[in-house]
Write a protein that binds this DNA or RNA. Structure first.
Lengths: 217, 217
DNA sequence: GTTTTTTTTTAGATTTGTCTAAACATTTAG
DNA sequence: CTAAATGTTTAGACAAATCTAAAAAAAAAC
């Protein structure tokens, strides 16, 4: 078993290696985990000793198969708890991240299987992220970022790739929530902002925001 | 806010001072918390610095008002999670203690209030222990231990004062679960074991077991 | 009312995860 | 291709919670 802290490192390394395929850099981990590069190096060595990551000095880290399995399990726990918090306890989607961050470390396989069953085996969490099954399998989400769409394109909002409370509250206020249909009107050449139709109304979405909204065409 | 470890100490001190009214001894804490007396002394000093306990060298500790409030809050969280685990996730009453022991340290007042509401504000946990309300108030349970009853007495099983899995499984097997009606037939002079009627059948309960079963007449 | 036993505390070491400051490696720029 | 800038690691220190061994206080036994 891993400690609370080790689990956090594994999870962060997992998330950071989702986008890029390369090894994850020390500084990137340090920034995400709110610590110093030196501390990251220390922890990476520990994880390498436990064969949870592959590590070569100055070359960054990659998760080993065992490390990846552990990380996916943490992600599974996190997302199931988020579903619980939103569906059963009526939290808003922007309020659940920090609490799930604590709950994900509760150490009981039985608990998670029963929670999964209680929630009727959800396939995705309140932000549209897929929930790995018991064995760690899940569909990679094949959605397109809103900023990649062209005028006249239509699609459904399926998820977000940024989970900060501020971002989610902004979406909420604009009505850009999961399941909504949108249609691109035009893209502003100057700042990349996107004008689109949402429920019969036209709104403008900045490029920065659009990058974090996931669309199914 | 207290650390995970500090919370555990407060909880243990609270439970140990439930029965006896005197100050709690270092060794008693050490035994419960599975550690050494020296470690307990260190932690007690820390808690005394934070004014969560009153402590005089060699005289044991008592909870301060602030310490008691913190402890009761932990007990509240623990018992609410136990209700959740049994009622919603279908755990058995002998399986929930260890998981609740972890869940009780999740740090969110909002979470607990919403959980309480979701569970419809339960008054007691699966072992019959009362659940303190948001402000820390709860009825001291005024039940009688089974070994204090006399022949011909009737009563309902309302709770237990021992939470080990082994004990609870034993009760389960004998059918001695919460809400059941019992009637004392006779008490064996020799070993203090009690013969009683439970659902039309006569069974014998050892004195040791009877001491931990709480009855409402 | 000493002596013995038990309980508690102190002193100093250990482990986990962190930090700062300095050294080292790699990448980027000129 | 060397020099500067950036990124990473090492060395040594620190805080939290624990431990062992020894000293000190309190309680129990005689």
């Amino acid at each position: 078993m891993q400690s609370f802290t080790e689990e956090n490192y594994l999870k962060i390394i997992y998330h950071l290696s989702q986008n890029h395929d390369e090894a994850v850099q020390t500084n990137a981990i340090a920034e995400k985990i709110q610590t110093k590069a030196a501390s990251v190096t220390d922890m990476i060595k520990k994880l390498a000793d436990k064969e949870l990551v592959d590590y070569k000095k100055y070359q960054g880290v990659k998760l080993s198969p065992a490390g990846r399995a552990a990380a996916i399990n943490i992600v599974r726990r996190h997302r199931l708890w988020e579903v619980f918090l939103v569906e059963k306890l009526n939290f808003k989607w922007d309020e659940v991240h920090d609490i799930a961050e604590e709950l994900e470390h509760i150490n009981s396989a039985e608990l998670i299987e029963r929670l999964d069953e209680f929630l009727a085996f959800p396939k995705s969490d309140p932000h549209g992220d897929p929930i790995p099954d018991k064995s760690g399998k899940f569909d990679a989400l094949a959605f397109i970022k809103l900023n990649k769409l062209k005028p006249e394109d239509r699609g459904l909002i399926m998820g977000v790739s940024e989970h900060s409370s501020a971002f989610l509250r902004h979406l909420e206020k604009s009505g850009l929530t999961l399941g909504k249909m949108i249609k691109i009107i035009e893209i502003n050449d100057f700042d990349g902002s996107i004008e689109l139709t949402l429920e019969q109304k036209n709104i403008s979405v900045s490029r920065e925001v659009a990058k974090h909204i996931l669309i199914k065409l």
